[in-house]
């Protein structure tokens, strides 16, 4: 069975003028179909205002679609009675690390989700322990979140979701407010969760370097899915990505330019190592 499935999802924001009348309706998500398998690492790409964050909020029933349906683990998100089950099985991490940490001590924040679910005290402690271990933050368990770096705070937020034992984690631009080191920390933690704990990951981002590890990449523009496939398939279409104002990883871009200049390089080179290897091979052959 699919972890997350969506069919023809539409969501609209209404803009009101000064008299309170609707003067404009903006379709943030426009007929999106999704199909995410258990254990997948899916990345959703798109520039600002492409509807990717709005779509993310549909995946754990913070928003419900105006038209169409979203199923999380087989449950319809419009079903009010199952809303807490859905939010437990699809956890969510948000962009701003400060605005999603509730506890004044790291371990208390991680325990917040299980507390809400009514997990017995002894088990909460076990869950907090293992979640902090999973994101490598056990050392900081007695610290105040205010004293941590952005990357550390974001890892605490991830631990808080992991403690709820979700099957799937949706991360809505978790690295947008972090420095490069913090970004690496967070992505490393997310990949470990996906590979070690076998948790389905939906990563929403506009940093291309974070996408290359995904099993599947979905590119959104103006509320619609415009491209879908493995990172290699997506990044071999440099022209199309550029046309929807998205960057490609530096190595990919360099390979593309070299190819334009006449070198015989394959499509969809993702990392610097791959590029070096291909260039060496090219040199040996000549």
């Amino acid at each position: 069975m699919n972890m997350i499935e969506a069919s023809r999802v539409v969501y609209e924001y209404a803009h009101y003028d000064e008299d309170g009348n609707i003067d404009e309706i903006k379709r943030a998500v426009d007929g999106v179909d999704l199909d995410i398998q258990k254990g997948d690492f899916v990345a959703i790409l798109g520039h600002n205002g492409s509807g990717k964050s709005t779509l993310a909020k549909h995946l754990n029933a913070i928003l419900t679609p105006r038209e169409g349906t979203v199923w999380v683990d087989g449950k319809d998100t419009k079903d009010e009675g199952k809303i807490w089950e859905i939010r437990q099985s699809a956890g969510m991490v948000f962009q701003n690390p400060d605005n999603q940490i509730i506890g004044t001590i790291v371990e208390e924040d991680v325990g917040f989700g299980p507390e809400n679910m009514g997990v017995p005290t002894k088990e909460i402690w076990e869950r907090v322990e293992e979640s902090l271990k999973a994101v490598n933050m056990v050392k900081y368990r007695h610290h105040s979140p205010n004293k941590l770096s952005g990357g550390q705070k974001q890892r605490v937020a991830i631990a808080g979701v992991v403690a709820m034992h979700p099957q799937c984690i949706v991360l809505d631009e978790p690295t947008a407010m972090l420095d490069p080191n913090g970004r690496k920390e967070v992505i490393r933690a997310v990949r470990a969760l996906n590979q070690v704990e076998d948790i389905t990951v939906v990563l929403i981002t506009h940093y291309m370097e974070e996408v290359i590890y995904a099993d599947k990449v979905i590119v959104m523009d103006e509320g619609k899915i415009i491209m879908q496939g493995t990172p290699r398939e997506i990044f071999s279409q440099v022209e199309k990505l550029k046309s929807c104002r998205l960057d490609v990883p530096q190595a990919t871009l360099l390979a593309y330019e070299l190819k334009q200049a006449g070198l015989k390089l394959p499509d969809g080179i993702l990392t610097r190592e791959e590029l070096v290897e291909e260039l060496c091979r090219l040199k040996q052959n000549t």
Binding site: N60, R87, E108, F112
Partner: peptide, 26 residues
Amino acid sequence: RRANDLAMAMEARCYHGGEGRTKMKP
């Protein structure tokens, strides 16, 4: 804005008032 974000984050982590809530440090 922070309050709005926090409310959403709390709901996403299944917060629904004191009903049926257990304590980590009773």
